[in-house]
């Protein structure tokens, strides 16, 4: 992948922007692309997300971290229109986005990926890519019937798709069904497909989850590349090594709220963050212990549910943000 020193431009700009910022949650950024105010989402009695104020700096890579059940994915879902917030406003490029359905959020330039990859299995890799392009003439019913309306645009799209596939080293697979790709390749495909949208802000939900170490480096490179091309990246991640490596700024969530912000080098020594992670392991890849904790929590919830005769089976989602985060797919 690219050497960081060579591409100092966007990276340096991004890091310079953060240089003198206070390490406070909700601190104003010099040039925010996304501004969030008072977003609240409750599931029954449980508050999964309650973010009072947060801003995302344009042209930077911002990491969103937090212990399990902190509401990161739920927060993502609110911002991208995949779930309806109970209250709150947020603006993207100054444009209010609350209440907008998911597809309009995307059209505004905010695109997301999913924790569990969503490759469209029975479409070929190339078709997956083409689908990402916006404003396709052939996607309207009547024009679709007459190929000459959309043929030309389709060729342009194909060309762009092939370029991206080559960049993501998927060009050899272009005619394979997406369902036949490996987990890591699907992650790559999903990211490449999101780029077909030509987004300004790319939101990645755990881009490294389930990817083998060999591919991790390549994925990291691609994420850094997005910033080099002028895009803004917001990503959710558990792996602190990765966060430290690529992010310019880190936002920490716990129990639905933003509790701390700061540069990656110092964020983990912040007392609030240590408190939030207390008991969890904040400086090692979390996967194993995390899994155990997760299992433990869910078991406890199940136990509680079983011992509560009044609960209907639908109470299962009640264990909270934990489950809501897991069940979103």
């Amino acid at each position: 992948m690219r050497d960081d020193t060579m591409t100092a431009g966007p990276k340096a700009t991004a890091q310079a922007a953060f240089k003198d910022l206070a390490r406070e949650p909700g601190v104003p950024k010099p040039d925010p692309i996304l501004v969030v105010d008072n977003v609240v989402r409750r599931f029954g009695g449980l508050t999964a997300v309650e973010v009072s104020h947060v801003e995302i700096q344009r042209g930077s890579i911002t990491a969103l971290i937090g212990p399990n059940g902190a509401g990161k994915t739920t927060f993502f879902n609110q911002l991208t229109g995949f779930d309806t917030a109970d209250s709150g406003t947020w603006t993207f490029n100054g444009r209010p986005m609350n209440g907008l359905p998911a597809h309009k959020v995307v059209r505004a330039g905010m695109v997301r990926t999913f924790q569990l990859t969503k490759a469209l299995s029975r479409l070929t890799v190339l078709e997956n890519m083409r689908l990402g392009a916006q404003k396709q003439k052939g996607e309207s019913f009547w024009r679709a019937l007459v190929p000459s309306f959309w043929r030309e645009q389709e060729d342009e799209i194909t060309e762009r798709a092939e370029e991206l596939l080559a960049r993501f080293k998927l060009d050899a697979k272009r005619d394979d069904f997406a369902g036949s790709l490996s987990g890591g390749q699907r992650k790559l495909l999903e990211m490449a497909r999101a780029l077909m949208v030509r987004p300004e802000l790319v939101m990645l939900d755990e881009p490294m989850a389930g990817v083998n170490p060999a591919l991790t480096q390549s994925l990291l490179g691609h994420v850094k590349d997005l910033r080099e091309q002028g895009m803004t990246v917001l990503f959710v991640e558990h792996d602190m090594d990765m966060v430290r490596d690529i992010s310019d700024w880190v936002i920490v969530m716990a129990q639905g709220a933003v509790i701390a912000e700061g540069p990656p080098s110092t964020i983990m020594s912040d007392q609030r963050v240590i408190d939030a992670y207390l008991g969890a392991h904040h400086d090692a890849p979390l996967s194993d212990s995390e899994l155990a904790a997760q299992l433990h929590e869910a078991e406890a919830a199940l136990e509680a549910e079983i011992h509560d005769p009044g609960a209907t089976r639908s109470a299962s989602t009640a264990p909270g943000a934990e489950t809501t985060e897991e069940t979103q797919k």
Binding site: P101, H103, V111, F114, R122, R130, E139, A144, V146, A194
Partner: peptide, 27 residues
């Protein structure tokens, strides 16, 4: 004609995973 077109591609994609299609800006 329809299923060969981008319109048909969106339909087939919805069959596979409608959230993914939504995340690509399709209604």
């Amino acid at each position: 004609l329809l299923m060969k077109s981008p319109w048909g591609r969106v339909l087939k994609a919805i069959r596979e995973d409608e959230d993914a299609v939504r995340a690509l800006g399709k209604n």
